[in-house]
């Protein structure tokens, strides 16, 4: 019994920090979402008014939610495909492979703020690297971040920059696939593509499942790049949900409204996470 309390005593700094800085605000924000609250004055109870306004009287809420959905729908599968593809290539035993792995992994550890600033220049329509390359082939590139149609896709394109983070996890998963399965497949006459499709992919579905969950959660919280690179523009085409939430909370001082937005986001993320969990038995294969 005494040993148990000693254990709690050792983790008490974390417990206290979690209670005060995470659990407390988390629970308080439920209350704030039913109030008019500006951080400084005492909250005033307004019932469901924040939620009513969000659902029925705020087109920007729906627009920002739609943009975020679209991003999750596009960027997550693209990121998984790119990360997995890279991992498969970098799983080959060729000379200098660890150098290639390092090269592809490094971008993912560059701070997102620095990456964003660099990409503002890379995507510059006049003097940017991308349009410079396109010009070599006689193509006039779009205005990317300044173009209402292209700004969103520019951010999707940029998300591939950090694909190395996922790649390294896939690579670890690939290394864990038992060689005996490949040997058996070869004996059965399977070619490289068949081995990839029928052995490799099923065996790393737990890793894909993990990256899918994390990717969906990350996509719904997409903020920094939009805040630095576009501030939601042009014409609200990159007005992501988290950016709108931030504006409501800190720029317009509608913390109650922002809390309601945060809870809707929480519910949405939970819904998709549960949905993915519910389906995972059909497509995720564990070794046992």
């Amino acid at each position: 019994m005494r040993k148990k309390w000693v254990g709690y005593a050792f983790i008490s700094p974390w417990l206290i920090g979690f209670t005060v800085f995470v659990a407390g605000p988390f629970l308080l924000s439920i209350y704030f979402s039913f109030t008019r609250y500006d951080v400084v004055s005492p909250p005033v109870w307004v019932g469901l008014a924040n939620y009513r306004k969000l659902f029925f009287d705020d087109p920007l809420f729906w627009k920002s939610l739609g943009i975020t959905f679209k991003y999750a729908l596009v960027a997550v599968p693209v990121g998984i495909a790119a990360g997995l593809g890279l991992a498969l290539l970098l799983n080959l035993e060729i000379r200098g492979i660890s150098v290639y792995r390092t090269i592809f992994y490094i971008p993912s550890i560059v701070p997102v703020v620095a990456t964003s600033v660099v990409f503002v220049w890379i995507l510059n329509p006049q003097i940017g690297l991308v349009n410079g390359l396109l010009r070599v082939f006689g193509i006039v590139g779009p205005a990317w971040l300044q173009d209402t149609t292209w700004a969103f896709w520019s951010l999707v394109f940029m998300s591939l920059w950090a694909v190395g983070g996922g790649m390294i996890i896939y690579l670890a998963g690939l290394k864990d696939v038992p060689m005996t399965l490949y040997e058996a497949a070869i004996i059965d006459g399977a070619g490289p593509l068949q081995r990839t499709w029928h052995v490799t992919l099923p065996m790393i579905t737990p890793v894909i499942f993990f990256n899918l969950i994390m990717g969906v959660i990350g996509s719904f919280q997409y903020f920094t790049q939009a805040y630095i690179m576009t501030m939601g523009g042009p014409e609200d085409s990159t007005h992501f949900y988290a950016l709108y939430l931030f504006n409501r909370a800190w720029r317009y001082l509608d913390m109650g409204y922002a809390s309601a937005m945060a809870w809707i986001l929480f519910v949405v993320v939970m819904f998709f996470t549960i949905l993915i969990f519910r389906t995972h038995k059909r497509w995720v294969h564990y070794g046992n």
């Binding site: 510059n124 329509p125 006049q126 003097i127 205005a143 971040l145 300044q146 173009d147």
Partner: peptide, 11 residues
């Protein structure tokens, strides 16, 4: 419209 966007974004 587009010409000005391009010009200004290059500055």
């Amino acid at each position: 419209f587009d010409e000005v966007v391009r010009f200004q974004s290059g500055l």
